[in-house]
């Protein structure tokens, strides 16, 4: 594979690179910034993000979204999915998204239900 087979831009062309090596360092910089934001938020824990939104704290949603962003750049640039054919990209990503979303939905809802049963039941768990 020659250098010209790589797509040398991220953020939909906002950030262009001269060579593949440059792109790798750029992506590392971006991933580091995201990780630093995550850790800073985890340590500071701003009061405004502690409010509950869709059954978990707002800050947790931010963590999950930032994680997915990081996963995208690791898969697309480090695992060079960006340079693969769209059919290969889709067969990997769509498979995972559907199966994992299904699994998460089923088990998280079920866990929540069991919590309710234990909480509202007539059995004491504190003894």
């Amino acid at each position: 594979m020659d250098d010209n087979t790589h797509k040398l831009e991220i953020f939909r062309g906002l950030w262009k690179f001269k060579s593949n090596q440059h792109k790798i360092w750029g992506v590392l910089f971006f991933l580091s910034v995201v990780t630093i934001i995550e850790v800073a938020l985890g340590i500071v824990k701003p009061e405004i993000l502690m409010n509950t939104f869709l059954s978990t704290k707002l800050i947790n949603w931010i963590f999950i979204i930032l994680t997915l962003v990081k996963a995208y750049y690791i898969a697309w640039d480090f695992m060079h999915l960006r340079d693969e054919k769209s059919g290969l990209q889709a067969s990997i990503v769509i498979t995972l998204i559907f199966l994992i979303a299904y699994l998460v939905f089923i088990l998280v809802v079920e866990g929540n239900y069991i919590y309710d049963v234990m909480y509202e039941g007539f059995v004491s768990w504190d003894f």
Partner: peptide, 15 residues
């Protein structure tokens, strides 16, 4: 994801 979702299940069960 099976492991992590099982973790999520137990966590929501003992939220």
């Amino acid at each position: 994801s099976g492991f992590l979702v099982a973790y999520g299940f137990s966590r929501f069960k003992n939220i």
